[in-house]
Design a protein around this nucleic acid. Structure first.
Lengths: 225, 225
DNA sequence: CCTCATAAAGTCATCGGATGACTTTATGAA
DNA sequence: TTCATAAAGTCATCCGATGACTTTATGAGG
């Protein structure tokens, strides 16, 4: 639903086909009518149908097989919930990130190796402290460290979710310049690595919570639009 | 990067244009070359370019204005990481869900009210136990309870992320019929509510972890494709 | 010189047709 | 019945043309 925008045929076709899919007009694995038929059904050209189908393919609803046809892959809309999560308040986003950070640190403690610990220390060294200068570059180095912690969990889903939030949080932080949000020092970061290195999930858990606590309480005091 | 799939020109064009966008060849708000020029640049037809551009529009990278041109809306990739998360292994997905469940229960404990607790008990009662019959309906009732726990956290972002996974996990469970994954009993569910009701995050945390432990270890023993 | 209606140019939107590549099904000989 | 081959069906890609809309250039009138 695109409010207040002029209709264009391709978007209309996308909406029409998608609504038929979620209404389960065709079940998963079933074949859609061919492009010429869809074109006739919606009274639009075949090129427009192709644009619509390709969008639905990119959204995971359909799959096209050359020479065979177009098939339904999923009948549930999965892209919208996440785009909504990106519009959640900054505090909600941080809480969600905190959940990931804690669990990732726990898993990292279970799956850590000397190489991984060494890499984390190297990234923390590279990050350094922020002493003026290029804020964007510092945020990038900071993010690289935290991503590495998540990656140490070995959990693909968590890595992807974190990337999702990182992109939007980076934008927000660059905008607000982070003056109101306390940045944990090197020691707090190092504590996380040390806790993971012990191999005890509970210690890793606690270290991350100590790390996040001041940030979250700062966000609680702040007002967001 | 789509491994092992045959190349098709439109996907190649999508990747090529997107990579130029994220590389900031054009800044936000800037206009791309017109369709004919892009067509010549990539040596593909204008129709193929249009398909690629429309996909990038649907992903929030571009915006087209009839009569004017095609403009960059965002240079950061936000939609692809999550679609990848959906293709993560079932164990990874459950671990990520566990992270959300634990943190949500902690927050719910902090923000609980008698009304919320009562609602949770009501949903658990409605869920009941699975004693044969309509599996899909039971999964729906079970999911409704767990979603309510997440909702009790009051965290919008977590709710959305959970919905994202719930859709894909429901499909998977319906397919595998869940025989190999142990389903916690009513008592384990009730323990979570009781722990949240105490208002102590640590107890809620522990209750959820006790709840998830058997599922995760079952998944660890299982082999997934 | 400035204003502003109008013309011209530029660009996306949509259409129709045509050819190639690939898959599935039908065919027919062994 | 088996299996190579032909035929039909379908998506992939290209080309050309027209319409709709926006932006820019133009030039007359003040």
């Amino acid at each position: 639903m695109q409010p207040l925008t002029k209709t264009n045929l391709a978007d209309t076709a996308i909406a029409a086909i998608r609504s038929e899919i979620v209404a389960k007009r065709w079940d998963i694995g079933e074949k859609l009518p061919n492009e010429a038929t869809l074109s006739a059904m919606l009274s639009v050209s075949r090129g427009t149908i192709r644009e619509a189908v390709r969008v639905l393919v990119s959204q995971g609803f359909l799959e096209t097989r050359q020479g065979s046809g177009t098939y339904v892959l999923s009948t549930t809309d999965t892209s919208t919930p996440l785009s909504m999560a990106r519009r959640a308040s900054l505090r909600d986003q941080f809480e969600a990130r905190c959940a990931l950070d804690v669990e990732a640190a726990r898993l990292a403690a279970l799956r850590q190796t000397p190489e991984i610990i060494a890499e984390l220390r190297r990234l923390l060294e590279r990050r350094g402290n922020f002493e003026g200068g290029d804020a964007a570059a510092f945020i990038e180095r900071d993010l690289a460290f935290h991503k590495a912690v998540i990656a140490a969990s070995g959990n693909r889903a968590m890595i992807d979710i974190y990337d999702f939030f990182a992109a939007s949080i980076t934008e927000t932080i660059e905008a607000t310049l982070g003056a109101e949000i306390p940045e944990p020092d090197m020691q707090a970061h190092a504590d996380i690595i040390d806790a993971i290195a012990t191999g005890e999930p509970a210690k890793a858990d606690a270290a991350v919570r100590r790390f996040m606590a001041p940030i979250l309480s700062a966000l609680d005091r702040k007002i967001f639009s």
